[in-house]
Design a protein around this nucleic acid. Structure first.
Lengths: 201, 201
DNA sequence: CTCTTATACAAGTAGATACTTATATTTAAG
DNA sequence: CTTAAATATAAGTATCTACTTGTATAAGAG
């Protein structure tokens, strides 16, 4: 009996009709829809936060039916994860581009770093909510973690150039603390931005 | 017509049978239940966060039926607000009790302050979630705001004693930044507590 | 042109959860 | 002891929301 059931399930798997298929070929219209859905999701997440954003609202914002959304994303968390990944990678790249020829002083470089991060978070207010409140996929968590590492490494590298006596692990630790501090300030900072920055170093 | 309707609604208000009545007299059993419900809510909020905590789970944790919960609280947000208020007041009091005779140096006093806050957040892990994720009542927001003010004032007062040349508004501003920094570190700190503190001053 | 596959959506469903109703039991004041 | 009010719950309901189903149309490869 057991074997029979197994066999049946194995060969005639009553597949749940997988309306979303990760390997599906996309045409131009599809690619555009997917981008439009991501933009719509960003807007709604930004307005309402992760929890209060419904997939129906995202679909409505994009001007499509809820069912269409599920042609492009398996579930709500995947949309959030996709956005979070994009943003994390984008921001990491922006950070890596800062002072690539190493002409700035430590203070200037850190000032630039903060500026870049602040600008990014002002331009993409939804990033914060997504990272804090959304249940991210492993890939998105990885990208977020890399972003943190880029920040820490940036600080640590500048710090060691400024103070060559500093041990490597000490420098990294200072970088980590700086990251925590920065996140703390970001939390309070959907408003009133240029006020607090001067005190950061 | 409009007037008539108004009158009807005013006098014969089809009251929703208000199972929760804020003016209801409580007996001993009631007071205990209410406390038990708050303790249960704290436990579940701590485990699951605000959004994933259901009123049914709180009732179950307290060993009562869901309906009983609504004899004591009008809704889920009121439970969260009640807890957040309690905790904010408790923590503010603890902060005010630090170094009441002003015998500590600035560095020592701030160290004490951080210690007290850390201990509190370790003892009441749910406080953070409630403050960050729950839709608090006006009263609870007020208590939270007062707590922040106590923190800022503590820092500002010590700072001005240490550096009498500092202007009052400058001192307060430094206090505010310190608060932001502290919150940022708390965010990262459900774990690994005694590691980061030394670098704070 | 044809046929496969992608896109689209109307119209759902399933399951969860905040909250209610009706009613029974306990408390305690008079 | 009576009685009104407080406490308790079984058994709901209403609503919301993530997600599906079935089916129709548009694209585009050959």
């Amino acid at each position: 009996m057991q074997v029979f059931t197994y066999t049946l399930n194995f060969f005639c798997e009553d597949s749940p009709m997988a309306v979303f298929d990760p390997n599906r070929k996309r045409n131009a219209r599809g690619e555009q829809r997917q981008q439009a859905l991501l933009r719509a999701a960003a807007a709604v997440f930004g307005r309402l936060g992760y929890h209060d954003t419904t997939t129906n609202a995202i679909a409505a914002e994009a001007g499509v039916s809820p069912a269409t959304l599920y042609q492009f994303f398996p579930n709500k968390a995947a949309i959030a994860s996709s956005l979070a990944s994009m943003y994390a990678r984008e921001m990491a790249q922006a950070e890596r581009a800062i002072d690539s020829e190493s002409v700035l002083s430590f203070t200037e470089a850190v000032g630039e770093l903060i500026d870049v991060c602040m600008r990014f978070n002002r331009r993409r207010p939804e990033f914060h909510t997504l990272v804090v409140n959304a249940p991210l996929s492993a890939a998105a968590r990885e990208d977020k973690q890399v972003l943190g590492q880029v920040f820490v490494d940036f600080i640590a590298a500048r710090l060691r150039r400024e103070l060559p006596t500093l041990s490597c692990s000490e420098a990294v630790h200072h970088g980590q603390v700086a990251l925590m501090i920065f996140r703390g300030i970001l939390d309070e900072l959907t408003v009133a931005s240029p006020h607090a920055r001067p005190r950061l170093q």
